[in-house]
Design a protein around this nucleic acid. Structure first.
Lengths: 155, 155
DNA sequence: CTATATTAGTACGTGGCACAAACCAATCCG
DNA sequence: CGGATTGGTTTGTGCCACGTACTAATATAG
């Protein structure tokens, strides 16, 4: 309980940090007229071409939510639906060049923004942070049978 | 680049961690039929009795958004509006006992959940994390003239 | 090989959330 | 007093998420 102790409780600090990071991403995305979920969608699609169903699992959304999400993204030309030849029920979603460009830009700006956020940290502190965060994320994935579900946008 | 290197890039790790934390909060809140923003609202009101305007600044929302947010919360009895006596334009918002109980429960569960998330960390690692996160949050507040705007729910 | 499940996705209706623009009161101030 | 400013609400738009019902395609049982 020192007088100039800036240390919040762990829980509080983590919560606030998470708001900071999410807000950063949301703001940048908003500059490109993307919502957080659209951005996440494009992030997932960068290295995948999932069916609607799989997408639902990745993003942890009901399939009825996916329909709308994809429709809006498709209307904007960020994404396309392709009906599978072997099972004509399934629709595979893939990102367009426009979509890819967009998400790439957002990812880049996001990285910069995070960099600014961490401007005060020394290199070894940054490393500590990366290591700790990775550990937490990794442990969580392992616990939950690593359903991704949380792909970020960053590189 | 060791073979079993689980370390994501800093940016990625931070992004994913923030999703983890936010999802945890959102899930818990949802169990009480609270959205993230309602939860944040109640969190802010725990130690404040702001006007609609101030609230808008705290939560970084347009005033027209605040109206609806408060109306819904008030309809649920979590919050009350009181017209100021000295300036009959301003409405001061305060949390009700019900609201307080609710947010207290959410905060408690959230703390537990974060605890689980960090189960793998040693005590000194937890301290490191708390310190680093606090530093980042603090630096950011200082940069932006510490508009809070990000109050967490936690204790 | 039909008849009945099951599965993938869509349609529709509901409600929360966020915004912008227009608006109404109350207060301020010249 | 009368025009500006300020605090909040209203209204209309659009996104997002859900649950329920529905359609079409495939799988499975008999």
């Amino acid at each position: 309980m020192s007088s100039r102790d800036e240390t919040l409780g762990l829980v509080d600090a983590l919560a606030q940090l998470s708001f900071l990071v999410q807000n950063a991403l949301a703001e940048i995305a908003a500059d490109y007229d993307l919502s957080l979920i659209q951005t996440r969608l494009l992030g997932v699609l960068r290295d995948r071409e999932p069916t609607m169903n799989e997408l639902g699992r990745h993003l942890d959304l009901d399939k009825s939510s996916i329909t709308g999400l994809i429709s809006r993204a498709q209307r904007r030309g960020l994404v396309v639906r392709t009906v599978s030849d072997i099972d004509r029920r399934v629709a595979r979603v893939s990102i367009t060049d426009d979509g890819r460009n967009l998400v790439e830009q957002v990812a880049e700006l996001f990285a910069v923004r995070i960099g600014n956020l961490l401007a005060d940290l020394a290199d070894d502190e940054r490393q500590d942070l990366a290591r700790l965060a990775s550990r937490i994320v990794g442990a969580d994935m392992r616990r939950n049978g690593f359903e991704p579900g949380t792909e970020a946008v960053s590189d």
